[in-house]
Write a protein that binds this DNA or RNA. Structure first.
Lengths: 215, 215, 215, 215
DNA sequence: TATGAATGAGGCTTCATTCAT
DNA sequence: AATGAATGAAGCCTCATTCAT
């Protein structure tokens, strides 16, 4: 019967919605209280479900963290891919701009994800998922390589191994969010927006031909 | 008598040596196994002492972590101060170079310290020590401000708020170590040295007058 | 549906039963082995549950002790209140008798509770609960004051501040259990029942008009 | 040589003085901070000596506690013996008065000793010393028995087994110190001196012929 | 002889995960 | 299918006691 199919579909939908609620609850709690101070109980409560239910959706707490990471990484990569397209279609800075906007647009979350990745790295429990994360990145890296080679060919970027360029960008973005949200530094100024703008500008132009002189 | 003074001195020396052994053991274990997988017992074993002895030197596990952090930060800042002097004495890139060399010279450790800082941030147990860390930085920041203002006056650096310059450097260094030691990226190339060189070069020149164009 | 309500009720009941089992296990172990020689693990084992389960019911070991104390104190006070009523209704010795019977009826337990109180006094961890204990007492004290004043008015008790009377009783009861169960004294005779009777008799009549002569 | 004998004597004296300092330090710390919150280190510090030295004088922490107990008990018993003599020499209330004065004269200490006894009871580590304590008591008990029998013969005390009389006194004294220094009761009045007087008066006359009626 | 650094057994507590209802 | 009570492994830390100096 049709209704039965619909019911199953509706059920699935509710199931996925709930899963999203769990992830969202975890994300917020991690941001609010720090990864170390969030228990599975908290997450369940915030998601408005029972603790046991969490384990119908995720095998372990680590899997929730992985999920937050993967969600984020995919979003970043998707945005970056669009930027790459734009770059190849005539707007050389588009990729870098897209990347910085994505990562610095919500720096607290970006920082959280960095910390999650650091924690999960090397945990055998999430080995598979980490590989998945790396696969996502690898695929983007291929696009990036192609793009950078093209920009080098066009004499826009310095002729160094392509990954130098995008890894430098990644590094800069990575560090920028730390700069802005690490208490030890961030508390000493409040014009974070302009600062991030400045750093983005650097990110977009760095590695461009003519920028670097030998030390 | 002299011998008694000497004995006390020798005792103190041995005490401090042992303390250093503890810190060293912790540092290595953190690097080898990840912060989460190291217990106080492990540290004691590796240091070749009893578990209780650790608590003669440190009030808590967190204090050991703080110590690693502070040791590192002080070293970095000391090197940076030397670079600042050189910069003010006619070698404009000296400070940036010194900074990048210090941080990228032992990137695994730098990365560990970043992670430790992230974990300890906001822990009331180490509030005082974190403030100490921030004080160390603040003092360096003052030197940096002076230096950057001078470089701006000399038309070497762009005329933006001074902290933009050194925070950008900090961000780049911070991110660079992540790039090189995060499994997801680092596993995909092995010419890390050159990469770090490249990034350092960027760091040294970025923010220089004429480098940035409006986006 | 009804069944759901019932289920919740049944669950609650089982929960409370288990809690009582924990308290009972602790009480027995404390009596058998001494407060110092009982660990949370022991309690859990004796109660037939896991160690972690204890912490679903009590925040800490100290809270279990407090609970034993409060349970006991409430029982004593309730009995005393009944005695006070009887006293006011024409049986002058009723209150004192009720009090002594309650406390000397199970002197080992009374003694345990005394020791628990001594240990918990001043522990900030159980400050609130101690206040509760004191509140229970305070309320009984009010009844006692009223009663004693009436007995003084009726010329049965000496005209001294009312609390002298009941505190003397309390003191005597308190000490009596120690007499009977402190090894140093108790081992030297075995007619404890008669002894306690004798002491009770003293307690019931002490402070009565005509009993005391100036020293 | 004489001087050598003297030296040894002086040494011994200093040794004993130090031992007393340890006991005194422990006593004060126990009173100030509660038995649970005093470590051997604290005691050593307060006594102005090294921790290891404590163990030249006492086999264990428990032995220090025992010592405090024994010191106290001997003092009480000595005073009581004097009172017994006075009683036998024509002052019937002398023994009871002496006893109450001794114990209620420094009720905090009396209370401490009670708590120490409760803790040490049954600890195999101090079995021998506890027996010593009991021996001290037993010897006094014999005197008391003699005395009470005499007072019964003289028709001053009720004709019940002799130990009923002095155990009742002990009980009353024991409880009185608790009444005055247990927070739950004591905080509610401040005329402790008069209260203790009142209780002493009861103690001195209780058990006297004509005081007790059948319940 | 006095010391106090070193020790490690053992306590309390947390929390991810399981499973009976 | 959802729940949350139960579990127990695992970690941090304390402190009485020892022993080399």
């Amino acid at each position: 019967m049709n209704s039965s199919t619909e019911k199953i579909r509706a059920k699935k939908k509710r199931f996925l919605e709930r899963e999203e609620r769990i992830v969202e609850a975890a994300r917020r709690l991690f941001l609010e209280n720090g990864v170390d101070n969030v228990t599975v109980s908290h997450i369940a409560q915030r998601a408005g479900i029972g603790k046991g239910t969490v384990y119908k959706h995720f095998e372990s707490k680590a899997q929730i963290m992985v999920r937050i990471m993967l969600d984020y990484e995919k979003r970043i990569c998707a945005n970056l891919e669009k930027g790459i397209d734009a770059t190849l279609n005539g707007d050389p800075g588009a990729a870098a701009r897209a990347y910085f906007q994505s990562r610095l647009g919500n720096p607290e979350l970006d920082r959280l994800v960095q910390h999650l990745e650091a924690r999960l790295e090397g945990e055998p429990e999430v080995e598979g998922e980490m590989r998945q994360l790396h696969d996502v990145r690898r695929s983007t890296i291929e696009s990036l390589n192609t793009m950078v080679k093209e920009l080098i060919r066009r004499n826009i970027l310095e002729d160094v191994p392509p990954h130098y360029h995008y890894l430098a960008c990644w590094a800069l973005a990575q560090g920028a969010v730390e700069v802005c949200f690490n208490k030890g530094y961030a508390d000493q100024f409040d014009d974070k927006e302009s600062l991030l703008d400045f750093i983005s500008r650097i990110g977009v132009t760095m590695g461009n031909r003519g920028q670097l002189r030998r030390q």
